[in-house]
Design a protein around this nucleic acid. Structure first.
Lengths: 124, 124
DNA sequence: GTGCTTATTCTACATTAGTAATCTAAGTTT
DNA sequence: AAACTTAGATTACTAATGTAGAATAAGCAC
């Protein structure tokens, strides 16, 4: 059931909804305008495209126009990770780039180790 | 100077050139046809677009039509990492997704720790 | 219930990417 | 040198994305 491609601009909308939902178009607009200069129409287009892609949904037709995500951030991240790996020779190369660019810290790596163990246990 | 966007299809060409260069169009085609069914024209388009973007270069005009990369894989990976992080809340989230999807192994994580230390030393 | 505001739908236009054909120029073969 | 093969340039078409306007419908304010 591969999650349809979510574009960069659309992702900004998803981020809001993952943080808090439902949100109305007006609320989404309000939030986005804090960080972007997107036109109302543009924001509407993004929301409607997301709906058309089936990753968000209005709570009820002609209600308050509130939207909720149908895909969790986790699901999206897992799907996106696969797509993204193609761009790097391997996960390791990507991880090293993250370290080299200072985006993955010491603490992150320690957490990763723990996380890896937990995953190992969970999956036997 | 930001490396221009390299598309997925173009990246397949870059991979070959990073492995071995210079390569002629014919060699590139030969390699790509092992893994894709792309038309000759398509492959030429990819090579020419890469050249237009300034990331590869013919060794000499009207020589044997040999191409060399002007950007190393390392440079590309570091630039791409930044672009890619936008898609995930944080490097940590991406790394965890890599673990969860089984793309980042135990050994990789150990290597990352070592790598982190080395980087730390290098940068004081 | 008339007007203002907002949501929904539809349409649009530029750019990039994936895919490819055509035309021309040059090199290779015989 | 005529034919074949290839490289390079130009052009094209489709889908996705970023960006946005226009038309329509519905809800709210007074």
């Amino acid at each position: 059931m591969a999650i349809k491609q979510i574009s960069d601009a659309e992702l900004a909308v998803m981020r809001l909804l993952w943080q808090e939902s439902p949100l109305t178009l007006a609320q989404i607009r309000g939030e986005l305008l804090k960080t972007t200069a997107w036109n109302h129409s543009t924001i509407k287009t993004l929301v409607f495209r997301l709906r058309d892609k089936g990753v968000i949904e209005p709570l009820d037709k002609y209600g308050a126009g509130q939207y909720v995500p149908l895909v969790t951030e986790d699901e999206y991240v897992l799907a996106a990770e696969k797509a993204v790996l193609d761009k790097f020779g391997s996960a390791k190369k990507l991880a090293m780039a993250m370290v080299r660019n200072g985006h993955l810290t010491d603490a992150d790596i320690e957490e990763l180790r723990d996380y890896f163990r937990l995953e190992g246990e969970r999956n036997g």
